[in-house]
Design a protein around this nucleic acid. Sequence first.
DNA 1: GCATGGTGTTAGATGGGGCTAACTATTAAT
DNA 2: ATTAATAGTTAGCCCCATCTAACACCATGC
Lengths: 229, 229
Amino acid sequence: MPSTVMEDYLKAIYELQTEYNGARVRTSQIADYLGVTAPTATSMFSTLESNDYVEYEKYNGAVLTEAGEQVALRLVRNHRLLETYLTAKFGYRLSDVHDEADRLEHHISDRLVACLADELDDPTTDPHGAPIPTASLDVPDRPRGNQLSAFAEGKTVVVLEVDDRDDGVLEYLSNRQIVPETALTIESVAPFGMVTVSPVGRDESVPLPADVANLVWGASITNSDREGI
Amino acid sequence: MPSTVMEDYLKAIYELQTEYNGARVRTSQIADYLGVTAPTATSMFSTLESNDYVEYEKYNGAVLTEAGEQVALRLVRNHRLLETYLTAKFGYRLSDVHDEADRLEHHISDRLVACLADELDDPTTDPHGAPIPTASLDVPDRPRGNQLSAFAEGKTVVVLEVDDRDDGVLEYLSNRQIVPETALTIESVAPFGMVTVSPVGRDESVPLPADVANLVWGASITNSDREGI
DNA sequence: GCATGGTGTTAGATGGGGCTAACTATTAAT
DNA sequence: ATTAATAGTTAGCCCCATCTAACACCATGC
């Protein structure tokens, strides 16, 4: 059984590894991500290695083993189901769910997680649009679309996912009801990356600085072959 | 902020202190209660003391300070509301709720606890019949009645509380639907303390060994002045 | 192809929470 | 009033996760 601290590292490694398409994760990335010093990350990498949760090669980062991935996926599932539950049942906002879920994900039993999933009818995505691993820890593979900055002006786009890394950004977006499922028209894309969008059905222009627009993923629905989404 | 380990000790001290009507709690009691060795308890008592959570006198146990009591009461509230929620919403049995609540009570935010309370309409007792401290951490003072062994044969008694210390006992009782609110007729009280009861409306005799009968508290309803309960 | 900066690791310390072994108070029994 | 038994504490160790300081690797630029 990994400690909750080890769990945090494993989940962080999973997240970075996923973000960079399976690339090895370096100690410094984790140190940054978790806000610890570099030596702390190094030492945890070797602890994880000696518990067979990662394969670690000095000066060259680590990859999760099967066992390590299972631990991480369980946490991701717990986290995303908790977020979904908090949002659905208690009206938590997108920007609020993260911290609560981050604490509880380590301590909730598989049984209670199963209850949450059941109550929610086995959702496949969380409120940010991120996929929820199944009970057997498979990740439903789901198109994420493209970042808003990638679309041409005039396109209509449905939001598929909103990255949950920055609470400030999430708050900005959820205040303007730009959440998964929202349809947006791309009004303009400025050279320095700012995207202005207009939610379909609302007479409003919302400016999204490049940093924000890059955290919002969507799929075009004007001439797309998957209107079904 | 106390660590979760300190929280466990504070809650344990609170529970023993309450059970013994405010008497000082000795290190050995806590060592037993929490399954740690005596020196560990001693050392934690002085840590708690230097953080002003208890007043500790060597060789003479400790009492909670105001601050220590607040910490303990918050945990008790969290614990009991979690138990109530798990039972009410997910069909947990009396014997199952304890562990889940014991882990989560440390990590759930005040906000989420408030949501649970709200969803449950601010219950005043948990599924074992124990009082739930209010949001401002007052303990509603509620008669607990007497242990079943204290009643005369022939009396009809309504169960007010079932002590949650022993999961085996809880399972035995909840399998037989002897839970708070259940009405029982006392069929016999043997000299060695075994009480045989018959749940009102069921044609069944349930034998309760002394150890079990002492964990069930109730009030007589045959000639009582509080049929209202 | 070698110096140099950056990245990463080793060394050594710290604080929390736990343990065993050894010692000291307290209490009870004669 | 002593002493034996029990209860409680101190001493000293360990492991985990963290830190700072010092050192080693590596990938360049020249």
